[in-house]
């Protein structure tokens, strides 16, 4: 998984609802405040619906695009075991995308509309997948750091106010833990290996550390819509809270591996009981979001090719099913 910028509400959130919807809205907020779930057919403010459609579909797209950087290594995994594990993990990411697309569809958007938004570039996906995976250690670093950051982001969403999203997240979180552990195990093997292997692990950590911290989205000060998302209980913690938690649990893991987190300002603050870390380069984050990361074009191109080349399969399957139906009707 892989959400980010969970507070990216659109302009429709700023529109005023009609006065007559005030009662409905109050009842809706009452349910949310009482920790009751909102289900697909329940009344909900349009801004809530649009926010969820955007967030869930972008989350789904991230899962789907997320298959690409790791899929890159399936044919070159170092052992048969690693290959089986990697295939299972990539298949899980595809499955997570499917759970999430179904959850989004309950809000009234179609699967094809969502694909169109992804392929046209209108919808975003997590910026982390626009980075390349030049070595096998990158597969380990993705599992350990990227999936680790994802888990941190996703566990609170299991308690999201929208029922179908919350239920999809429960399934996803159960599966995500395997992803992180297999990644850490790869890093452990490399860190204990030859000098060249250890260096490979260190370089992968150097590449993925900062992009992983960026996965939590802009800092709270820049994050205009956090308050609304939290009021709706779509979001439970702020970006900075989650990022801090991630740093606090991950740095000791890096220490265990004997690897160095690439941040000269990183240090333990015993009074706060937190790690202090250096400033994040948001200009890089914004450039990648705007489409100028190392692999943005390649990723979208791969998705477009998959969609176009699969077109005849989708059409043929439909035609075949139609034919079978007609035959059954005739035979009856």
């Amino acid at each position: 998984m892989y959400t980010q910028g969970l507070d990216s509400l659109g302009k429709e959130c700023l529109q005023q609802e009609g006065a007559d919807s005030g009662v409905l809205e109050a009842r809706f907020q009452g349910k949310v405040d009482a920790d009751e779930k909102i289900e697909p057919k329940d009344w909900m403010p349009d801004a809530y619906r649009q926010t969820l459609i955007r967030q869930i579909s972008q989350h789904a797209h991230s899962e789907i695009v997320g298959m690409l950087p790791e899929g890159n290594w399936i044919t070159r995994a170092p052992t048969l075991k690693r290959k089986a594990v990697l295939i299972a993990k990539v298949q899980d990411e595809g499955g997570h995308g499917m759970y999430l697309y179904s959850a989004a569809e309950t809000l009234g958007i179609s699967r094809d509309q969502m694909f169109e938004q992804l392929l046209s570039g209108a919808a975003k996906y997590s910026s982390i997948f626009n980075y390349p995976t030049p070595t096998w250690a990158d597969v380990g670093a993705i599992g350990w750091l990227v999936d680790g950051a994802a888990i941190m982001n996703q566990i609170p969403i299991c308690r999201c106010s929208y029922g179908p999203y919350a239920r999809a997240m429960v399934r996803i979180c159960k599966e995500e833990s395997f992803h992180q552990r297999q990644g850490f195990e790869i890093m452990m093997m490399l860190a204990r290996g030859t000098e060249a292997q250890r260096r490979m692990a260190q370089e992968a950590l150097d590449r993925w550390w900062w992009p992983s911290l960026m996965m939590f989205g802009p800092s709270d000060a820049q994050s205009k819509h956090t308050a609304q998302s939290m009021r709706w209980k779509i979001k439970r913690f702020t970006n900075d809270e989650l990022r801090q938690k991630f740093v606090d649990i991950t740095v000791p893991q890096a220490d265990y591996l004997g690897l160095k987190v690439p941040d000269p300002k990183l240090k333990w603050d015993p009074t706060a009981q937190h790690y202090e870390f250096g400033p994040i380069d948001w200009s890089e984050f914004n450039a990648v979001l705007k489409g100028n990361g190392p692999c943005n074009r390649e990723r979208l191109e791969a998705r477009r090719r998959a969609w176009e080349e699969g077109g005849w399969v989708r059409d043929a399957a439909m035609a075949h099913a139609e034919k079978q139906r007609r035959r059954q009707v005739q035979a009856a």
Binding site: G95, M98, A168, E175, A321, R325
Partner: peptide
């Protein structure tokens, strides 16, 4: 959850892949 498929047989096969991997 839900699944897209052309017919019931494919729906069961896809449901198997998406919802029962473990």
């Amino acid at each position: 959850g839900s699944i897209h498929a052309v017919d019931t047989r494919m729906a069961i096969e896809h449901a198997r892949d998406v919802y029962t991997r473990r």
